[in-house]
C-alpha cells in the first residue's frame, strides 16, 4: 500500500511539458470564499509563477478531501486540524505544511426570542450538530457546560433551524451565520455562542501533504504553500476581484452563489487567517494551539495518542 502511494506520488510530482511541476489540491469543501486564496492564486497564475501547474479538485461531500488525499488523487489537501491529528494518530502519514485558519469561527446560534441567553439554557433543547469531526467542537462545548441536549444531525443547510425544528444550530461565522441572516433573521434576533469566546478555539483549515511527497519534493510543497499565501494576500487586497474569481469556480461547479455572501465569507475568513493582523504569521501552527487541540481530542476519547508536534507540523513558514 505504501509502495503504491509512493509510486502514485512520484507519478504526480513530474514535470509537465511546460516545465512546470504538476500537482493537485483538494479543498475540504465545495468552491467558496473559504478557499478564495487558492482559486485566486490559480486564476492569477501565482502557482505557475512558482513553478506549479496546479489542478484544484472540487471537494465537498462527494469528494471528501481526506479520502482523495489518502488515495493519492490529490497531492495536497485542505483539512481540519482536528481531523488531521486524528488521521495521523491513526497512522496516516500526513503532515501539516501550513495552518491557514488559525482560529475557529464555529458557533451555536439560537433565536433570542427562544430565551436561550446562556449555555445552560440549552439543557433539554434540540441542538443540531454536523456529523463527524465537525461535531467535535460542539460536543466539547456541550461537555464543558455539562449540557444534556437533544442532538439532531445537521445537514449542509440551516433549514432545520429556520423551520424551527431545532433550537440551536451549528454555524461558521463566515458561512451559516450569514446564511441565516440572509434568510431573514436579523443579527439582533440571534443569540450566538462563539466557541472561540468560550475557550474552545481550535485552528481549522490547514494544508496537508503526505510525508513521502514532502520528502520527495519539499521545494514544491513549500512553493505551493507560498503561492497559496500569496493568493490569500492578493484576495484580501482585492476582495471584489477575489469574489468574482471564486464565483466563477462556483458557477462551474453548479453551486448557488451570491456576491453578498461570498464577500462576507472572504472578510470573515481573513479574520481567521490573520487574527492578529500580522501577515508574517500566516500559515504558522503554534505548538500551543496544536497541543490544546490534540488534548481535546484525547479528552473526548477520539484518539488515544497525541502525535509529536514536530512530526505533525512541517510548516514552510517558520517562526
Amino acid at each position: 500500500m505504501i509502495t503504491a502511494l509512493v509510486v502514485l506520488a512520484s507519478a504526480a510530482l513530474v514535470y509537465g511539458e511546460t516545465g512546470l511541476k504538476q500537482a493537485s489540491f483538494v479543498p475540504q469543501w465545495l468552491p467558496q470564499a473559504q478557499f478564495a486564496g487558492y482559486y485566486v492564486a490559480l486564476d492569477k497564475g501565482i502557482y505557475k509563477k512558482r513553478g506549479i501547474d496546479l489542478k484544484i479538485i472540487t471537494g465537498g461531500p462527494e469528494n471528501p478531501a481526506a479520502a482523495l488525499h489518502d488515495n493519492g488523487t490529490a497531492d495536497f489537501a485542505s483539512m481540519w486540524l482536528l481531523s488531521a491529528i486524528q488521521a495521523r494518530a491513526n497512522g496516516k502519514k500526513l503532515v501539516n505544511i501550513a495552518q491557514i485558519l488559525r482560529r475557529t469561527s464555529q458557533m451555536l446560534i439560537t433565536r433570542k426570542n427562544s430565551g436561550i441567553g446562556e449555555p445552560q439554557a440549552l439543557n433539554g433543547k434540540k441542538v443540531s450538530l454536523w456529523a463527524g469531526d465537525y461535531s467535535i467542537q460542539g460536543m466539547a462545548f456541550l461537555n464543558k457546560y455539562d449540557l444534556k441536549v437533544q442532538l439532531v444531525n445537521q445537514s449542509e443547510t440551516v433549514n432545520l433551524f429556520m423551520s424551527g425544528a431545532v433550537d440551536a444550530v451549528s454555524a461558521m461565522l463566515y458561512n451559516e451565520y450569514h446564511t441565516i441572516v440572509n434568510s431573514g433573521l436579523d443579527p439582533e434576533e440571534l443569540a450566538v455562542f462563539s466557541f472561540y469566546e468560550h475557550g474552545l478555539d481550535f485552528p481549522e483549515d490547514g494544508l496537508y501533504v503526505s510525508e513521502d511527497k514532502l520528502a520527495a519534493d519539499s521545494a514544491l510543497c513549500c512553493a505551493f504553500v507560498q503561492a497559496s499565501i500569496e493568493g490569500w494576500l492578493y484576495a484580501f487586497a482585492h476582495p471584489d476581484e477575489a469574489v468574482e474569481i471564486v464565483m466563477k469556480y462556483m458557477k462551474m461547479a453548479h453551486i448557488p452563489s451570491n456576491k453578498a455572501h461570498q464577500k462576507w465569507m472572504l472578510s470573515k475568513i481573513r479574520d481567521l487567517i490573520i487574527p492578529d493582523n500580522n501577515t508574517a504569521k500566516i500559515g504558522i501552527l503554534t505548538q500551543a494551539d496544536y497541543q490544546r487541540t490534540a488534548a481535546m481530542l484525547k479528552v473526548g476519547g477520539l484518539t488515544e495518542t497525541i502525535p509529536q508536534f514536530d512530526s505533525f507540523y512541517k510548516g514552510c513558514v517558520k517562526k
Binding site: P61, E62, K126, A131, V152, N153, Q154, S155, T157, N159, L160, M162, S163, G164, A165, V166
Partner: peptide, 23 residues
C-alpha cells in the same frame, strides 16, 4: 454516503411532526 436521515426533506418533517415543503 447517503444518509437521508440528515436530509432536510426527511429531518425537518420528522422533527416538526408535520408535512413540510422543503426549501
Amino acid at each position: 454516503n447517503d444518509n437521508y436521515f440528515n436530509q432536510d426533506w426527511y429531518a425537518i418533517p420528522m422533527a416538526l411532526g408535520q408535512p413540510v415543503w422543503s426549501e
